[in-house]
Amino acid sequence: MADKSILIIIRKAPYSNSIAKGAIELALASSVFEQKLSLVFTGDGVWQLLAQQQTETLGDKNHGKLLSALPLYDLEPVFVDEQALNQRSIELEDLLLQPELINSKTIKKMMADADTIFCF
């Protein structure tokens, strides 16, 4: 397979449907093929990164735990839209994975540079 770069843009909150989970599973599966892959969290997607997720009562798998596996799959750093955090009054220290903050200009550049874009 040619060395194609993949960009996954994640913009949905977790739990109400399976889109967030599907996006991360796509990333994990793609990493097995050692593709160049970047993850950007924007919009409501930044809710996925909150560190204090507890799903015992809900009975679902813990999405935060799934995200915690990303470094083991060599999918780090993840990128986060700074403006999306600010709009939601989320602090960087509230988040999993020590993400790298980026602005919309950088996201546009990443999109322009990617061979394939998946937008979830």
Binding site: L28, V32, K61, K65, L66, S68, A69, L72, Y73, D74
Partner: peptide, 13 residues
């Protein structure tokens, strides 16, 4: 820890 069964590479890591 991750509620996930690992693939080979992450398992090695």
């Amino acid at each position: 820890e991750f509620e996930l069964s690992p693939a080979m590479r992450p398992l090695i890591k």
